[in-house]
Design a protein around this nucleic acid. Structure first.
Lengths: 149, 149
DNA sequence: TCGGAATATTAGCTCAGCTAAGTTAGTTGG
DNA sequence: CCAACTAACTTAGCTGAGCTAATATTCCGA
């Protein structure tokens, strides 16, 4: 068996690679679960707040972006509204449309949680060698392409 | 702005890299959600079945491995048992311990779902260039190190 | 104008996580 | 030796997050 940290050409067979990617995905999912447990917002709530950072959005947009059905997003926004983190508005051009935007408290919470998450991730990354970080940085665009078929 | 597909040294600053990794994680989570929706087992069930492939396990072991509390695993195993995919057993040496093992149907289901997942992932990977696959393969051990601090 | 399409919500289900409390079985100290 | 403690697990009851089906509202086009 060759050193997995320096795979040569030929180890990049799609079938073989899929198993490795699958295992790593499993690891990352478990890792994310550990790091997001017990935070002041759930990871879903954090993700939705992040979608609102640039300004108000429509319910349909939010549902689509997060790959959930509209009723799911309705309930999610209800919870965030109850918590005072978002506010619903109306579209003056179309009375069917509800808009959602961050409250001041919502924006503050978003920034705080993001800060904490990035700090933790930054610590993990700082523990790597510079070479490993370069390797990882090179792979990010590739990972971003997955599923864009 | 430099081409993000060919980061040079210096872009591997932990703080900057953290934001990129964070964005990619978000993408992967959404991708996983899309690909696991509507399958014959949920992703959690699939994960638990995978833990049983090598033989019977104790409840405590399973809970620890999946980073959940024991009651959560009890309910999960109840569902899998109701579905006929696993069977509970006893430890002859300690009557407090319940063991869990795959049924024939459970093993068949595990293999079928794994097959489908790997095939789909393989397709995504086949759409990449060989160079991209090499890049990805090189990054897998690095990703696997994350969170092992 | 009226019927269909679009937008959103409500209702009711399942899965999956949690804590608190209870049961049964092993372990240990007086 | 038995009483108290610990360990392993389950039950009960909560929340979050997803789904479909059904129900308003509103818009738009024939």
């Amino acid at each position: 068996m060759t050193d997995p940290s320096t795979p040569g050409p030929g180890e990049a067979d799609p079938g073989v690679l899929a198993e490795g990617v699958s295992a790593v995905l499993r690891h990352l999912v478990l890792l994310l679960r550990r790091t997001t447990a017990g935070q002041p917002v759930t990871s879903q709530q954090y993700a939705v707040l992040g979608s609102l950072e640039q300004g108000p959005r429509r319910m349909t947009e939010l549902a689509e972006e997060h790959a959930v059905q509209l009723p799911t997003m309705t309930v999610q926004i209800n919870r965030l509204e109850d918590a005072g983190l978002v506010a619903r508005g109306a579209d003056p051009a179309d009375a069917r449309v509800r808009t959602v935007e961050l409250t001041g408290e919502g924006r503050a919470r978003l920034l705080a949680v993001r800060q904490a998450r990035l700090a933790r991730l930054g610590q993990d990354l700082a523990a790597l060698t510079e070479r490993e970080r370069d390797t990882l940085a090179a792979a990010l665009p590739v990972l971003a392409k997955l599923g864009r078929a």
